Simulated scan of single mutants.
Amino acid sequence: MPNHDDIIAEIRNQRGSSLAILGHHYQSDAVIAHTDIRGDSLELARKINGLDAEYIVFCGVYFMAESAAILRRSGQKILIPDTSASCPMADMANAANAETVLSILNSAEQRIIPLTYVNSSAAVKAVVGRFNGSVCTSANAQTMMKWALAQGDGVLFLPDRHLAVNTANALGVAEDERVILNDNVIHGDPALYVDASLARGKRLIVWPGFCPIHEEFTVADVARIRQTDPDAKIVVHPECPPDVVSASDGNGSTSYLIRFAEKAPEGAIIYMGTEENLVRRLAAEHAGRKTIIPLKASQCEDMGKITLEKLAAQLQSLDQAEPVDVPDDVREPARAALERMLEVCS
């Protein structure tokens, strides 16, 4: 059996600065150990343009590699060890349906600005860019929703309904100023379920997608911890349902959760509602000083498709590999949407 750690280390040493390996926090420890840069979606997006590397290997899911391909410089090649590593939430919004909804909503002398979560395809980001919208991450959702609300009469937020509602709650957008679109806009014909009057008087129109991993966390899980471990703190990701977020002691992006663990006092007990790889890693980093526990077992199968073996195989075939690419007619408007976010959050 080949030693994949040795193979990866040797190729990284041979390639030097011409190779960069980026990894999302939800990757396994085995993969994260070989990354040059780890972070959440915003942190990784910020790094792309400043990298000198010719080869950028993205250990995450496909929309992240697409975002890197959108932001890359000429001559850089973006690779992902498994192109089937998708994101179920991102797949809940396709570009054609998003464009149809936006065209309908903007047909009645109202200006609806789209704001897409970074967990979306390049094609969806391109639609958003063409409608003068932008992108957000869980780390900057409040900042970007404020920006979008100031640009027009209302905002279409897609694809995550939970992040949309949790952000609206944080910003004080009243419930009667919001509407969640019919679930059928995901796979059906949006024209059958959306008309221009739907957005009249609404500040926020919400796409009905969700993350299957974070959807699994429930108020019952929180109540169980309150009963069995009343001194513990509970923090969750804002992709969790709003009632779970409301019942917790705090919510935020992966970066927020990492900082929460770092700043917690010695002896703290913290339950985290997010993908388990990150929680287990934080538990190991703070072992003996703080106790960090998953709120519930929750692993993303698609993130798990990036394995040590596949990373080693990718590095062994760098010069022959087909890079992730985005056609120019998609890249340019998608890049505009991403760059609006980077500019607003600079």
Rank of each mutant, 00 (worst) to 15 (best):
L198Y: 11
N94Q: 15
S107Q: 01
D183L: 15
S18I: 01
I293D: 02
I269N: 06
H162W: 08
V179D: 04
L44F: 09
H34C: 06
A45T: 02
G129V: 00
G250Y: 00
H237C: 08
V135E: 01
L181K: 11
C136A: 02
L308M: 07
F210M: 13
E309L: 05
A122K: 13
D91K: 09
F210Q: 14
Q227M: 13
Y117I: 00
S255Y: 10
V118L: 12
R111Y: 09
R200W: 05
G129C: 01
R226C: 07
C345G: 10
I7L: 11
Y26R: 01
A95Q: 10
L308R: 04
A170W: 01
A85W: 04
S253F: 04
W147E: 12
A287L: 11
A168C: 13
I258N: 04
N277K: 00
I56Q: 03
L22Y: 14
V219E: 10
F157S: 11
I48N: 07
E309V: 12
S17C: 04
L198H: 08
D243Q: 13
R340V: 15
V57I: 11
N169C: 02
I213S: 01
T274A: 07
V179N: 03
Q314I: 09
L51K: 02
E239I: 00
S248R: 02
L115I: 01
F58C: 07
V173Q: 13
P238K: 11
K202G: 03
A334M: 03
A199G: 08
L342G: 05
D221S: 05
